[in-house]
Nucleic acid binder design. Structure first.
Length: 675
DNA sequence: CTCCCCCTAAACAGAC
DNA sequence: AGTCTGTTTAGGGGGA
């Protein structure tokens, strides 16, 4: 059964993924179609555009080209500049023409913002950067294409001038240019949308004081003529410092440099940093450490000798051939544009999904936080288990007061097991593949741990991170007379740990086994039968075995046990359940959440070992993570009792009012099951 | 790789 | 006869 459930979950997960991917496919198709039709749309009404206008445009384009070259040179140089200076000089002037053809990738400034705010996890950043790289590639191609067009145009113009022909052909060429510009604008538009979506999803935060992102509709619907007009306006707004100090000073008016002090309108259009020819790595130090920046032969679209252009997968022997392939097969055309568009949509989808998951995670964490702390503050937090002292008398009384009713049948112990909560019964005890217990090791007194996490252990089906021997000893030592009958030991287990309210046959057998096996447990004949006592000397003898673990771990345990252990367990459970290792490191958009997450992750690294180990320990052969892991399939034979028994039969047993009764519980069902 | 610890499963026997 | 208790063996996972 467990097996079934496990695979079910898995298949579900994959199903979801498949679904989404197929969705993407659909999306892709649609996008393609759409892209194509759009690619053709930029039909410019040439007739309406007078020749002067066209020439003006050409002029601007020419200037833009020059600027482009300069920009590229500048980039090379700026690589040597201190990033600080670059950052402090957002006034880097950007010719509109260049900005226009510069895809609105995330500017260095924004990038830095992101990095500083740490709103993104490294993984997210990586993804973003890769996206940016892809965009930059597109942009480069655009520029190349643009250059070619320019040259062609020049040539034709020359020929026409010499031949004295009337520029009908010229008009055609100009039309092409305009169409091309339209395409560029479209690209830009798309990228802006991309940015916008990022912003919407909180991936990008824009601070009020910062230069506005190029998100305004200004450029979106703008036609080249308007841009031209704008350039002129901007040009007139030139500031002295720009004229003197910048790299474009050699250019004529049409270069229309835009400074940071330029009218808001223009600054909106081009973020100064957008002028970097899309090469993100130039300004931000962190960017320079990008893999493909350092290694010229690594390319986001190239890997393992295969072109990674969506839907391509052409084999390229080496990087050079890849570049050739890229330029030939994926040059700027309708198809590439559409594919780029599609890719953007895919990215958007993913981002959307990420946002949703983040939201979910936040809810989960919030929920867990509340839950895990509640027991501490309130003795009877969830009305599940009355706070029971460890004394025997209490044990007698408490069981009755154990209201299992509030809980769901399937998850008797876990306070909240339904709905969005991730800590389902299954997840809870399926947590943690690691078989490690810090019990006696690490010198952490078991009593303190149990005392601290009493409520948690009682409520959550989390395996206590102690060996049976340790638990038995604890049970015995807690008793007034330091001696317990087997049945009383059983009772202690079930009373103190929700985990032991299931699979009774298993753990009881283990308890008996331990009692018999370890010399430290001494059986004493008593009036009312036999009782078990602890030979401390013997017990201590067997303790020093392996005090492994790093010191920090111990420290962790001491300090954060009360709160973190359960929390970690829960968190891990959720992770395991969702089997989303991908997201484990993915931080949340919310900084505080991210911090919390990282803290928790740390805890997981340390304290979790305990928790997990617990889980894996007694859980008959199955540990949570393992459950989530394919590898664990091996242990599935055990599952039947594990999952099936506990979930269905045992659960009901748990609800039995006679909680205090010893034999109580699931024993019977499970036993029957097993036998 | 080996040793050791721990857990789980199971067979078995004796007592009630 | 069935259940509980106690013992013992076997096998596997995991850490050192």
């Amino acid at each position: 059964m467990m097996q079934e459930s496990g695979t079910e979950t898995k298949s579900n997960g994959s199903a979801i993924q498949n679904g989404s991917s197929s969705g993407n496919h659909l999306l892709e198709c649609g996008g393609l179609r759409e892209g194509r039709s759009n690619g053709e749309t930029p039909a410019v009404d040439v007739g309406a555009a007078d020749l002067a206008h066209v020439q003006q445009q050409q002029q601007a384009l020419q200037v833009a080209r020059q600027l482009l070259l300069q920009q590229q040179q500048q980039q090379q140089v700026s690589g040597l500049k201190s990033p600080k200076r670059n950052d402090k000089q957002p006034a880097l002037q950007v010719p509109v023409s260049v900005a226009m053809m510069t895809p609105q990738v995330i500017t260095p400034q924004q990038m830095q913002q992101i990095l500083q705010q740490q709103v993104l996890s490294p993984q997210q950043l990586q993804v973003l950067l890769q996206q940016q790289q892809a965009l930059m590639l597109q942009q480069q191609q655009l520029q190349e294409f643009y250059k070619k067009q320019q040259e062609q145009l020049q040539l034709q113009l020359l020929q026409q001038q010499h031949a004295g022909k009337q520029p009908k052909e010229q008009q055609q060429v100009a039309t092409q240019q305009l169409a091309f510009q339209q395409q560029l604008l479209q690209m830009q538009q798309l990228q802006q949308q991309h940015l916008l979506s990022l912003q919407r999803q909180g991936l990008l935060t824009i601070q009020p004081g910062q230069p506005a992102l190029p998100l305004q509709p200004l450029t979106q619907g703008m036609i080249p003529a308007e841009l031209q007009q704008l350039w002129k306006e901007v040009t007139s707004a030139h500031t002295p410092e720009e004229a003197t100090g910048n790299n474009h000073s050699s250019l004529d008016l049409t270069t229309t440099c835009v400074s940071s002090s330029a009218p808001s309108k223009t600054s909106l259009i081009m973020n100064p940093h957008a002028s970097t020819n899309g090469q993100l790595s130039v300004h931000t130090p962190k960017r320079e450490s990008l893999p493909h920046e350092e290694h010229p032969h690594s390319h986001p679209l190239y890997g393992h000798g295969v072109c990674k252009w969506p839907g391509c997968e052409a084999v390229c022997e080496d990087f050079q051939s890849f570049l050739k392939h890229l330029n030939s097969e994926h040059a700027l055309d309708d198809r590439s544009t559409a594919q780029c568009r599609v890719q953007m949509q895919v990215v958007q989808q993913l981002e959307l999904q990420l946002a949703k998951d983040k939201e979910r995670l936040q809810a989960m964490m919030t929920h867990l936080h509340v839950k895990s702390t509640e027991p501490k503050t309130a003795p009877q937090p969830l009305n599940l288990v009355s706070s029971v002292t460890l004394s025997k008398s209490a044990s007698e009384a408490s069981p009755q007061s154990l209201p299992h009713t509030p809980t769901t049948p399937t998850a008797p112990i876990t306070p909240v097991t339904q709905g969005p909560s991730v800590i389902t019964t299954t997840s809870m005890h399926t947590v943690g593949p690691i078989r490690r217990r810090y019990s006696d090791k690490y010198n952490v007194p078991i009593s303190s741990d149990i005392a601290q996490n009493q409520e948690f252990y009682k409520n959550a089906e989390v395996r206590p991170p102690f060996t049976y021997a340790s638990l038995i000893r604890q049970a015995i030592l807690e008793s007034p007379e330091k001696q317990l009958t087997l049945n009383e030991i059983y009772n202690w287990f079930t009373r103190m740990f929700a985990y032991f309210r299931r699979n009774a046959a298993t753990w009881k057998n283990a308890v008996r086994h331990n009692l018999s096996l370890h010399k430290c447990f001494v059986r004493v004949e008593n009036v009312k039968g036999a009782v078990w006592t602890v030979d401390e000397v013997e017990f201590q003898k067997r303790r020093p075995q392996k005090i492994s673990g790093n010191p920090s771990l111990i420290k962790n345990m001491q300090s954060s046990h009360a709160y973190c252990t359960p929390l970690n367990a829960a968190l891990q459970a959720s992770m395991a359940e969702n089997s989303i290792p991908l997201y484990t490191t993915a931080s949340m958009g919310n900084p505080s959440l991210g911090t919390l997450a990282s803290a928790m992750r740390e805890e997981l690294n340390g304290a979790m070992e305990h928790t997990n180990s617990n889980e894996s320990d007694s859980s008959p052969g199955r540990s949570p993570l393992q459950a989530a892991h394919p590898v664990h399939v091996k242990e599935e034979p055990l599952d039947p009792e594990e999952a099936e028994g506990p979930l269905s039969l045992v659960t009901t047993a748990n609800h039995s009012p006679d909680f205090d009764q010893d034999r109580d519980y699931e024993d019977e069902p499970v036993n029957e099951d097993m036998e």
